[in-house]
């Protein structure tokens, strides 16, 4: 059964396969659907013909060896790069020609592999930036301290603390983001992304640099976030315990191409994956 699926994947299915969307989301419109997605950097096909579908409440993993093009896929989805091939559908809408900012307003939020916090601002302010488009008041109420300012600030403060409490970070609200320990910075990035009210959360190696205990907590929290906010999560991760532990669907990239898709069990027993990814790791060890 597993090998059959593997075969169909190596031939490359021409239409987006929803095969990895879990049953619970089966009938529903996927939050993300890419078809033949690709980008070339001066002849180098960093991402080539990627077909992905993520269900509305699915936790999905994107794995692959170093340099496989995982982060580039995220950059394509968030419009940091414009794809040279293929289309991206977000909640059924084509995102062609959009900017990063518009993609975020469409419901896609992300964290970064190399942490990108607003280091000179406090933890609370970082989250408040995430809330920027959710809780609004105009510039003039801000300058002249009109009632809109006080109401807006109060709401933002409350919401920011609510969001920070997911990761038990309320006591850090007034600390400078740049002075937090590494793990806390990663968690803050997730909170900040959540604040933008996304329907799809992209996490780029969220457990990198975390100790096993923190990783364990993170896994619980990702599931908690999914359940509480009813959103989809697509994550890149090298920690196989995390990926196999919480992902319902996994997509494996190698040299920019999808070499396998399926449930964790299917992926673990997939010979192509073992060869390209796990095999390589064994060699390294």
């Amino acid at each position: 059964m597993a090998s059959k699926k593997f075969k169909s994947n190596t031939i490359m299915v021409p239409v987006p396969s929803t095969s990895i969307v879990p049953e619970r989301d089966a009938g529903k419109l996927p939050v993300l659907e890419t078809s033949h997605l690709g980008i070339e950097f001066g002849g180098l096909k960093a991402v080539d013909d990627v077909n992905l579908a993520v269900g509305p409440t699915e936790i999905c993993g994107l794995i692959g060896p170093n340099g496989a093009g995982k982060t580039t896929v995220f950059n394509l989805l968030t419009k940091v790069y414009q794809p040279t091939h293929g289309t991206i559908l977000l909640n059924g809408k084509d995102t062609a020609g959009m900017t990063t900012e518009q993609a975020n307003r469409m419901g896609i939020a992300r964290t970064f592999q190399n942490i990108r916090l607003f280091n000179n601002m406090t933890v609370e302010e970082n989250v408040t930036i995430g809330l920027h488009n959710q809780i609004r008041y105009n510039m003039f109420s801000g300058i002249f301290r009109l009632p809109g300012y006080w109401m807006g600030e109060k709401k933002q403060h409350q919401k920011a603390l609510d969001l920070l409490s997911i990761f038990d970070m309320t006591h850090l609200a007034n600390a400078k983001a740049g002075s937090l320990p590494y793990g806390a910075q990663r968690r803050l990035e997730i909170v900040r992304a959540l604040a933008t009210h996304p329907s799809l959360l992209l996490l780029d190696e969220p457990a990198a640099g975390m100790n096993p205990h923190e990783t364990e907590e993170l896994m619980e929290n990702i599931i908690k976030i999914r359940d509480q906010f009813q959103i989809a999560v697509l994550l890149i991760e090298h920690d196989m315990n995390l990926v196999m532990g919480i992902c319902e669907g996994i997509c494996v990239l190698n040299y920019g191409r999808v070499i396998a898709k399926g449930t964790p069990d299917e992926i673990q027993s997939n010979p192509a994956v073992i060869e390209a990814y796990l095999g390589k790791q064994k060699e390294a060890k």
Binding site: T99, A109, R116, F118, M121, G142, E153, T196
Partner: peptide, 21 residues
């Protein structure tokens, strides 16, 4: 205020600010 924080965010990290909408 909200606007000023946005200005500071754009200074601190342009890419992150864009991806925050």
């Amino acid at each position: 205020s909200r606007t000023g924080r946005a200005i500071k965010a754009c200074r601190d990290n342009r890419i992150a600010a864009e991806s925050m909408g």
